[in-house]
Simulated assay, not measured.
Amino acid sequence: MKAGQPLTTIFAAPLLLALLSVVGLVAALTGDGWRDALSWAALAGPVATLLWATARRRS
């Protein structure tokens, strides 16, 4: 990591993952149909990121 990175650079990815999680959870709780698809897609993002980071760290 570079020294002196701005806070927006440091917290951009965690903020995006948090927003995806909130959108997915709210969509899952508020309705059916297209909201189910939205919740699956939004909640798959953080899971996919976790799997990618784990695979990258092991190699």
Rank of each mutant, 00 (worst) to 15 (best):
W52E: 08
R35Q: 14
G45T: 04
A12G: 08
A28G: 15
P6S: 04
W40P: 00
T9K: 12
R56Q: 08
P14Y: 03
R57Y: 05
A48P: 15
K2A: 08
P6I: 02
T30S: 15
A12P: 10
L43C: 01
L20R: 06
L15D: 04
V26S: 07
M1L: 12
R35S: 12
T8W: 11
T49F: 14
G4F: 05
A42C: 13
A18P: 05
L38C: 10
L51M: 13
T8K: 10
A55R: 10
P46C: 00
P46T: 00
A12F: 13
A3K: 09
A13L: 09
A3I: 06
A28V: 10
K2V: 08
W52N: 07
G33M: 02
T49R: 14
A28Q: 13
S21Y: 03
R58W: 11
R57F: 00
S59G: 15
A27H: 04
F11Y: 14
P46A: 03
P6G: 02
A18M: 00
G45P: 04
F11P: 13
L15A: 11
D32Q: 13
A28E: 13
G45F: 11
T30A: 13
L19C: 06
V22M: 09
R57H: 05
A27P: 03
T9W: 11
S59N: 14
R35M: 13
A48G: 14
A55D: 01
V23F: 06
F11H: 10
L50C: 09
T49A: 15
T9C: 10
K2E: 12
Q5A: 01
V26H: 07
P14M: 02
D32K: 05
L16E: 01
A27M: 03
A42E: 07
G45V: 07
M1K: 09
V23M: 06
L25W: 12
D36K: 07
A37H: 09
R35K: 11
G24L: 09
R58V: 14
A42D: 06
A12Q: 12
V22F: 08
L17V: 00
P46D: 03
I10P: 02
T30D: 14
P6R: 04
G31T: 01
A13K: 06
R56E: 06
W40F: 06
D36H: 11
R58D: 15
L43A: 03
L15M: 10
V26E: 09
T49I: 10
L25T: 15
L7A: 12
V26R: 09
G4R: 08
G4D: 05
L15V: 04
A28R: 14
V47N: 09
F11K: 10
D36R: 10
T8H: 13
G45M: 12
L16R: 08
L16G: 07
F11E: 01
A53D: 04
A12Y: 13
T30R: 09
A41Q: 03
L19N: 01
M1W: 14
T49S: 15
G33H: 05
V47M: 11
A37G: 12
S39W: 04
L20G: 15
L20T: 07
Q5C: 01
G33K: 02
P46R: 00
